[in-house]
């Protein structure tokens, strides 16, 4: 069970982590600056297992993987949005940060308690007593997610096995 942190639409990577903080690849340092300019209390107050819910086109802008790494570093369990910018989508999957595309994400409110079942693609909104079914991730993407990210997948497998 996690608390929802709600963000608007078209949230860009500069808002997730401004470029000037990208000089480190240390996950904890990046996490400490997550959303620092648009939501200064976030990094301090977010709890492991919390969930980010946002409007469409989440993570647009730069290709910086630092953005996905910073969010993973805060302990956020999952990001839910109607759609994701494509590079952020890949980055999140590749580092093993689960994301769910859910058209009804906008119904979820700040502070709601939600439970996410990744394998079934279900979001249970305990506060509102609703269940949302999300777009399932393609099989080969699930292979990366289940391995814990692209790096871990490639440690054990050849890339051709993704398509097998």
């Amino acid at each position: 069970m996690g608390r929802v942190w709600k963000f608007g639409e078209n949230l860009n990577t500069d808002e997730i982590i401004p470029a000037r903080f990208n000089i480190t690849i240390d996950e904890r340092e990046l996490a400490a600056k997550a959303f620092c300019e648009i939501r200064p209390d976030f990094a301090q107050q977010v709890q492991p297992g919390d969930v980010i819910v946002a409007g469409g086109n989440f993570g647009c802008g730069s290709s910086r993987e630092h953005a996905a790494v910073a969010i993973r570093g805060t302990g956020v369990k999952c990001i839910i949005a109607p759609s994701f910018a494509r590079i952020f989508f890949r980055n999140a999957i590749n580092i093993g940060l689960p994301i769910l595309e859910c058209p009804q994400a906008t119904e979820i409110e700040e502070g709601d308690e939600v439970e996410v079942d990744l394998s079934r693609g279900e979001i249970h909104n305990l506060t509102q007593g609703k269940v949302y079914h999300t777009n399932a991730l393609p099989d080969f993407v699930l292979k990366i997610v289940h391995a814990g990210g692209l790096v871990r997948f490639l440690r054990e497998h050849d890339i051709e096995e993704l398509m097998a």
Binding site: G61, S63, E65, I87, R90, L150, V151
Partner: peptide
């Protein structure tokens, strides 16, 4: 390329796109 504006080369008829760093590190290998 590990940069969102890698798409720039499309004007020359080249498919090019931006990716995150992990995929770039992986592509060095694959």
């Amino acid at each position: 390329g590990a940069d969102s504006h890698t798409v720039t080369y499309g004007a020359l008829g080249c498919f090019s796109t931006g990716l995150g760093s992990s995929e770039i590190g992986a592509a060095w290998i694959t």
